[in-house]
Design a protein around this nucleic acid. Sequence first.
DNA 1: TAGATTGTTAATCGATTAACAATC
DNA 2: TAGATTGTTAATCGATTAACAATC
Lengths: 214, 214
Amino acid sequence: MSDNELLKNSAPLPSVRRLPLYLTVLEEFEREGKEWISTTDFSEVLFLKPIQVRKDLAHTGIIGKPKKGFKVTELISTIYNFLGWNNLTEAFLVGAGALGSALLGYSGFQRHGLNIVAAFDVSVNVIGKSIHGKEILSIEKLPDLARRMHVRLGIITVPAARAQEAADCLVSAGISGIWNFSPSKLHVPPNVVVQREDLSSGLAVLSVKLGRFD
Amino acid sequence: MSDNELLKNSAPLPSVRRLPLYLTVLEEFEREGKEWISTTDFSEVLFLKPIQVRKDLAHTGIIGKPKKGFKVTELISTIYNFLGWNNLTEAFLVGAGALGSALLGYSGFQRHGLNIVAAFDVSVNVIGKSIHGKEILSIEKLPDLARRMHVRLGIITVPAARAQEAADCLVSAGISGIWNFSPSKLHVPPNVVVQREDLSSGLAVLSVKLGRFD
DNA sequence: TAGATTGTTAATCGATTAACAATC
DNA sequence: TAGATTGTTAATCGATTAACAATC
């Protein structure tokens, strides 16, 4: 019944979430021309305990050198490899509103192995228009195009009320993963992976933390 | 040394993150005119275990009725209360790029107690322009305005390299919380709360889950 | 009443942290 | 060599789940 039923035997998800954080530090070190980085280096910048960094990095399979740490370039490519960010995954985006447009315009995804190849909407007001150089297509064309282009990933940025509908469309198009930016819980078959990216969860945490100071 | 040092004695953060999810179900029930909702109702829609829902709701302090569950309207207002979403927090947004514009255009924040009252940028290309009806001001005006308007919250949507600078500016303006959409770790004094909302963390999780199916 | 659902106390599970020997 | 840092094994901590009596 759990979301993670098929996902055993890998790094703990909290560790996976921290890996991109390590990448930002690593890239900084690389720019500065440093060859080695230790877990204490990480811990000082990120306010984490060195032992936690060591455990996290161990999950990627990298092996360090006592007294030195890890080779910066090697660790970067190991993490990229671990995350599968060295080969591009092509994605369709559904919902070309404010948030969808923002994601279309975010250039950083390319470096993270994500390539949004097309965007779709239901509204005649945006269909045919172009946002950040990408043409918005009618949602009706999605299933056919997805199969022809072998697109594996769908990004949902429609309002909550339309999210399930968008998910159904993507599933019927044979997609294998969904990045869901709507606050809705999606019902999909067990072979489809869903990652919820819900701003309201983050805002809830922030609100509670802030409230503690009143 | 931990981020949560000052934040003891409240609901566990994973529970807090789930509360907005319950709200979407509750609002659906309310629209349908239902008076009562049980933890099994929640669990069926959200694929959670009833016991987890019960534990989560207990943290808000609400008391249910055996055999009936919880009063829909009462539970909604209890959660809103718990999150502090019934009175508006005013916020400044720093960085009027693609993501910043999207957040400026997101009408859902009002319902979640968040009111973005002004946006700031460093670029002369956007200063003076208006996005979704909100004028973009020069970052130089931020400290003075923040103090005069008693703004408590800052939202950072600048590129990683400018994030610390933006945080310093907000901190010097007396802000007490930061919602950080950049991938950088921010260094702030202990009385300032930071909530990181990092897309790359979510993408990392999604990538690992997807990779598991290859 | 009978039975569904609550609230509470205890058991389990998984992630974080500690301790320490191995190593360069 | 001496000491910093690694990798590993064990202890702790906190969240999830189970069990069950209380209740309407």
